[in-house]
């Protein structure tokens, strides 16, 4: 298969970027999208040109590193998949593919398609944990947890922190990301203890970092590679409002 690629190139955070067009040829349909970029990059290196910088690591859809906006969709075509899980058979031979970095004020571009997602780390540092010391905990089976609760907690905990939710949201809102963590811990007795404090601290940090406000479009849920539901946003709202009303 042959493709024309329109790729956003930007030297560093300060430079102005622009699209550049490349051609790749003889790509097998079984090639993954990122392998296709590897092939392009190897060609660019041979031509003495700077290869396209893009984030990737595990290539199994779990590390959350890959972050491309392909043909107008976060992580490209395909439901419940990260960019690294997209295969070229999803495209038609001869397609022109536009590749952009995440666009969000809180995710500044570092180079080409690489953005800084440190804001997500900062939100979790504000309260996305259970304050337990190492080795000062009860037996694992001391508190039974209903299977349904553990399963729901796991649904939310599947978040890989890739940033697709904020990148796809027309409001640049990180609510799905924040909600996933808050909701996952809120469903477990271990996390409930600090539930109110956590919801307040994480929302405050999210607001402070310049993320937008959720208007319930559901675009985040549609683009989340882990299919995390906006029901968790409802739970975050509930947790936050209940906490605030008790203040």
């Amino acid at each position: 298969m042959n493709f024309t690629l329109k790729i956003w190139r930007q030297k560093d955070a300060k430079s102005k970027g622009a699209f550049e067009t490349y051609k790749v040829t003889d790509i097998s349909a079984d090639t993954s999208f990122l392998e296709m970029l590897d092939i392009l990059n190897n060609n660019l290196v041979h031509e003495g040109k700077d290869p396209v910088a893009f984030d990737h690591d595990c290539r199994e859809g779990i590390c959350g590193m890959c972050s491309l906006h392909i043909n107008g969709l976060a992580h490209g075509p395909g439901q419940n998949a990260t960019t690294c899980q997209i295969y070229m058979r999803k495209f038609k031979d001869g397609d022109t593919i536009t590749i952009e970095p995440w666009r969000s004020a809180a995710f500044p571009v570092i180079k080409d398609l690489v953005v800084n997602r440190g804001a997500y780390d900062q939100i979790l540092q504000a309260g996305g944990y259970v304050s337990v010391r190492t080795n000062s905990v009860p037996d694992a089976n001391a508190i039974p947890i209903p299977k349904a609760d553990a399963d729901e907690s796991m649904d939310a905990a599947a978040c890989v922190g890739c940033g697709a939710c904020a990148a796809t949201c027309k409001n640049g809102s990180a609510m799905l990301f924040v909600a996933a963590r808050v909701s996952s811990l809120a469903k477990l007795p271990q996390g409930r203890v600090e539930g109110a404090r956590r919801a307040k601290a994480m929302v405050a940090k999210m607001d402070e970092l310049g993320f937008g406000n959720c208007t319930n479009t559901g675009a985040c849920q549609a683009e989340c590679p882990k299919g995390i539901s906006i029901a968790h946003i409802a739970r975050l709202n509930r947790e936050f409002l209940a906490a605030k009303l008790q203040d």
């Binding site: 906006h69 952009e100 666009r103 409001n171 549609a222 683009e223």
Partner: peptide, 27 residues
């Protein structure tokens, strides 16, 4: 606030996400 959060540089290509209503994006 939302407009600012979106950042100065916008996507060149935007595709409607599946299952997202038109109204929700144009309130």
């Amino acid at each position: 606030n939302n407009y600012r959060a979106r950042g100065a540089q916008r996507y060149a290509v935007e595709t409607k996400e599946p299952g997202v209503s038109w109204a929700s994006k144009n309130m």
